[in-house]
Design a protein around this nucleic acid. Structure first.
Lengths: 213, 213, 213, 213
DNA sequence: CATGAATGAGGTTTCATTCAT
DNA sequence: TATGAATGAAACCTCATTCAT
């Protein structure tokens, strides 16, 4: 089922792959330098060193271009989380959390420019849906992993995992938008691990509904 | 200091005030029904029941309209947090956190439609800067409050507070974008309190840099 | 016969006269500071210290305002020329020319800002017609005066007078647009007298159609 | 030096050149039929038989279009004057004047419609500056030429040349705006030659500051 | 009478997309 | 297949003019 938002042709030739990559990269650059509002297909093509016509050979319309870039990034981050989840199965809870959090942060920080640029697309129409779908995958992987924790009285419930993931995303975004200096990224990794660990531990002990005070 | 993004005239007459309010409200509605990409000044004016010209009597351009709405919302949330911080001074740490978190969530949930609509604006050019400025205020209030905690060995450092606030924002956003049913909002309040409490407690005990495992 | 371009009400009261004067003056100022393209009735009213509504009490539309200002200026210059022509009747030709030219230059230079500002209006639709009508009057006065010259073999023909007047206007404009410093104005007066005198003398001797070379 | 008012792209293909020419010509036509006030880019494009978008591919904005047309015309006239000045070097003064004046008038009259249309643009903001720059060139050429006159006691000073040129422009304009019938143009050529010749002769003899009477 | 908020037609400019070369 | 000129709908914004207060 060919959707209106999927790339038009799978680049079988090497040259095509290079072109697509250039366009993709150019999209990020234009997003950063001009903002989503002023991103135009012509500008992207120009920056990529190709003509608009060529751009339209690979993407049927502007939306598909934006979504492709966003999906690519989300896919990479999700894959990193899933891989970490797989690797960390059956380890101790705190270890699990540490490895996944670090995998997430590292994936996000590998190309800070991309991460920052895409916040703009993520907020546009259709963006939240894509993000949600990606999050769903990470969530599923997290849930599966946490179910294998040996020392857990009972695995954290779905809502707690969502909370944790949202906190991870929120904290990472905050650091990203503040500039993401190496020092801050280091602190983020450490603090985020701590935050998630302590939160999961807390939800285990207390049924959250009995929040004293 | 009259900037290019500030409202053009302060409505002195009663009718004008109504008009401005209608435009502001219409902006939210259009944002929700059409998305930021397809929000046009004409559409906003139409929805508000006035002519475009009238809109431009109060806002010098589209950006200023969007920013005004965003700033209004951020201002309200910030004010709620600041008030809660003031009220909770000298209470126990866990109590402080609970009150502030609940104030934040309540402020965000008072008009879920506005909160959701504005995520789109917050991501556009200039939006992050506005959000950052508002966050700075909340952060300062939080810091001041936490410094008055009686049973704290030492108040949490700035970075930890930033982490906590970012987690609050991220978790709230996640729930908002998932629909924000009353049940979910209730769980959010409880879990977020727990998350923040446990995190702050954890940072107090362990110097984060010594995260074992 | 009330035309669409004439002032709406003759200011009988003193206050009204002041208002009209203020609007008239403001028009010049806006013309100079913003240009004809960006002259708006609101801006003129603002500058004049009255409301747009008031402006429309005295002028039925923007055109009438512009034309009134232009006509006022043209009228003054024309009157100055006519008066000079009357005064110089029966004097020697060179004397006639000198007095008229100086009267013209002086009238134009009395308010250089007005003269400069109005070149913009004079070029707009309808402007040339007004200018032409005013020129016609000056031309008639010049012709009448020159007919009384005692020592002239035969009075200069109509075309020569037109040429002379056009040269006067052109030279004056050139100096005006170059800044019209007092020194330049002085030189203009002298040279323009010379130019007109020598031209008329030349047309008298040679029938222009026999221009040798 | 790429300014905001320079053409966007130089047409390399033959068709593009035709398009640019059509737009340029349409500008004149609209200027004549509607006036500068009511000249709109849409109307120009329509008249040129292209879409607005095409117009904006060659001119970044309305001003640049207007200025381009004006500069083109001024350039042609200036070139004609400069060429005449070069040709007339070392001839007798009266001959010089005759040739230059006729070259100027002929250049202006080659396309009377263009000359008339552009008076409107010349008066707008920025127009006078363009005109002045062009005049400067003609003036320089005139000065250089007059310096080579064999029979001149001393070459006319700069101000006199300015006066003469301004008179030429003024007289020509006057005829142009009066309809510029062939008969009138013929008379203009003859009278203007006479006027300039007699003026220059007069400045040579009398130091203007001693204008008796 | 004076005011100035409201109007909305219309102007300028952009930009996604197509298609002849 | 790649190009980039052309398109024209649609966005933003202005401003002459009116009219309720």
């Amino acid at each position: 089922m060919p959707s209106a938002f999927e790339p038009r042709k799978t680049p079988v030739q090497a040259r095509a792959a290079i072109t697509v990559e250039a366009i993709s990269e150019a999209t990020i650059q234009v997003l950063l330098s001009h903002g989503a509002e002023r991103l135009t297909t012509t500008r992207v093509a120009e920056r990529a060193g190709v003509s608009v016509g060529t751009l339209y050979q690979y993407y049927p319309n502007k939306q598909s271009l934006l979504f492709a870039v966003l999906e690519d990034h989300l896919g990479k981050v999700t894959a990193a989380v899933e891989a970490a989840c797989k690797r960390a199965r059956r380890k101790r809870l705190s270890r699990m959390v540490k490895e996944v959090v670090e995998a997430f942060v590292d994936a996000k920080m590998e190309r800070t420019d991309i991460s920052i640029a895409l916040y703009q697309i993520a907020a546009e129409v259709g963006g939240p849906a894509l993000v949600k779908r990606a999050a769903e995958c990470s969530l599923k992987a997290l849930e599966a992993m946490l179910g294998t924790a040996p020392n857990a009285a009972s695995p954290p419930d779905r809502f707690a995992i969502q909370m944790m993931f949202a906190a991870m995303a929120g904290a990472t975004r905050s650091v990203l938008e503040a500039g993401a200096s190496p020092a801050m990224v280091r602190k983020l990794r450490e603090h985020l691990v701590l935050l998630c660990q302590s939160y999961l531990a807390a939800t285990e002990n207390s049924v959250a509904s009995r929040s004293s005070d």
